Simulated scan of single mutants.
Amino acid sequence: MDDASAKARLPSKKALENYASAYMGAYMNAVEREKPEHVPTLARNAPYTVEVCLMPNHSFVMLFERGDKQTISVHEKDWNYVESSVMSGVSHLVTVYAHEGPTVADAIAKGKKDAVRDIRSLEDSSVAKAVVQLEKILDELTSIEKGNKSVLKIAELQLQKLQPIRDAIKNSGPEVDMLSMIDALRNYPSAPVEVNIDIKEKELLENMCQELGDLSDVIRRIESQDQRLETLEQAITKGLTEFGKSLDDKVGKGLAVVLSSSDRKIDKGLSEMQGHIAKLQGGDVPQDLDARLKAIEDALVDVRDRPEVAKEIVLAVADVRENMGRLGQRLTRVEQYLVELSKHKVAPKQ
C-alpha cells in the first residue's frame, strides 16, 4: 500500500473537528438528561481546549485541557507526543479506534455511551459514597445552634479543615489509566497483515477451495435427496394405509355378501334334504318291502321249471336288495351330516 492510498483513507481535519464538537455536545446532553447526583468530571469542568491527535494507525486521540472557552485543533502526531502530554497532565483523554468511525453520527453515539458509563462508574465508586457522607457531616455542623458561641467557633474551625478535603473529593472521580489506554490504541493494527504465498501454495489453496465447494454441493444434493426420500416415504405410507383401509372395507362387504348367499343356499339345501327325508319316512317306501321280496323268492319255486325266468327274477331281487342297502347308507350319512351341521353350522368334509 503506497502513501497516496493511505492518505486517502485518513479522515480530514474538518471531519475530526466536527467529531470532537459532536462528541462534547452528545456527552453534555446525556449528562443533562440523566441528571445524576454527582456530575462526571468531564461535564463538571467544561469548557475545554480539545486537541485531536491523528495517530499513525488511523486512530485518533482527543486531549482535554480546561480553558475559558471551547476550542478544537487537529494535528497529526506520533505516540511519543501523546504519551508526553499524558504524563505532563491532561484533564481528560478519549481514544477513538479506526473501526469506530470518524463521522458525526459515530461521535454522537460514542458521546452518549461514554457519558452513561462515567455516570454509572461515579455512582458505584467509593469516592461518591465518601462525598455523600462528608456532605452530611458538613450539613450537620452548619446547622448547630448559633447561640452557643463556643460550639460555633469549633464548628467553623472544623469546616475550614474539611472544606479542602470536600473540594478535592468532589472534583475527583474514578481513576483512569491513560497510559494503558494509549498502549491499547497503539497495538491496534492499522491494516490487515499481507500474507505472501508462492504459486504452488496458491494453486493448492485454490484446489482446496474448489474441492470444498464440490463437497458442499454434494452435501447439499444429499440433503435434498434425503428430503425427497422422506417425502416419498410419507406419501407411500399414507397410500398404503388408505389402500389397506379400502381393501378391508371391500373385503368385509364382499365377505358379508358371500356369507349371506352361502347361508341362504345352505338353508335351502337343508330344507330340500329334510323334505326328501320326510318323504322317505312318511310312507312312500313300503314298510313290508322285505316281506314282499320274500314272497317273490317263494314264488320262484313255482317257476322252477323255467330257469331263464327264475334267473332274471333272482337278479332283480338281488339288485333291489343292493339298492335298498345303498339307500340305507345314504340315509345314515345324511342324518350324520345334519347332526354335524346343526352343531358347527359348517358342513364336514366328505
Rank of each mutant, 00 (worst) to 15 (best):
280 L>G: 12
176 V>M: 09
349 K>S: 13
59 S>E: 00
261 S>K: 13
244 G>A: 12
137 I>W: 02
256 A>D: 09
12 S>W: 05
174 P>G: 01
60 F>V: 04
26 A>H: 10
131 V>F: 05
237 T>P: 00
32 E>W: 02
107 A>G: 06
145 E>Q: 04
192 P>I: 04
92 H>G: 08
279 K>P: 02
328 G>Y: 05
290 D>W: 01
149 K>G: 00
186 R>M: 11
292 R>T: 06
235 A>H: 15
283 G>A: 08
91 S>I: 03
265 K>C: 02
205 L>P: 01
69 K>H: 09
192 P>Q: 04
346 V>N: 04
231 T>P: 00
29 N>L: 12
74 V>T: 12
339 V>N: 06
346 V>C: 03
336 Q>L: 07
102 P>Q: 03
192 P>W: 01
247 L>V: 14
169 I>N: 11
36 P>M: 06
31 V>H: 05
283 G>S: 09
211 E>T: 06
170 K>G: 01
155 A>N: 01
105 A>D: 12
77 K>L: 13
128 A>K: 10
73 S>P: 01
42 L>A: 05
288 D>K: 10
110 K>G: 07
97 Y>F: 15
15 A>Y: 02
177 D>T: 10
326 R>L: 13
153 K>V: 00
289 L>S: 07
60 F>P: 04
263 D>P: 01
129 K>G: 07
7 K>P: 00
71 T>D: 11
211 E>I: 06
292 R>I: 02
63 L>V: 15
35 K>C: 08
338 L>I: 05
277 I>W: 07
291 A>K: 14
306 R>L: 11
325 G>P: 01
291 A>M: 12
123 E>S: 07
13 K>L: 03
103 T>S: 15
99 H>I: 08
265 K>N: 12
345 K>C: 05
281 Q>C: 10
279 K>V: 01
306 R>C: 09
120 R>C: 00
202 K>H: 04
35 K>R: 10
150 S>D: 09
70 Q>S: 11
31 V>E: 03
320 V>Q: 03
134 L>W: 06
51 E>I: 08
243 F>C: 10
182 I>V: 15
309 V>I: 14
78 D>S: 10
5 S>Y: 11
268 K>M: 03
331 L>E: 12
257 V>G: 04
86 V>A: 14
16 L>W: 05
113 K>Y: 06
132 V>C: 10
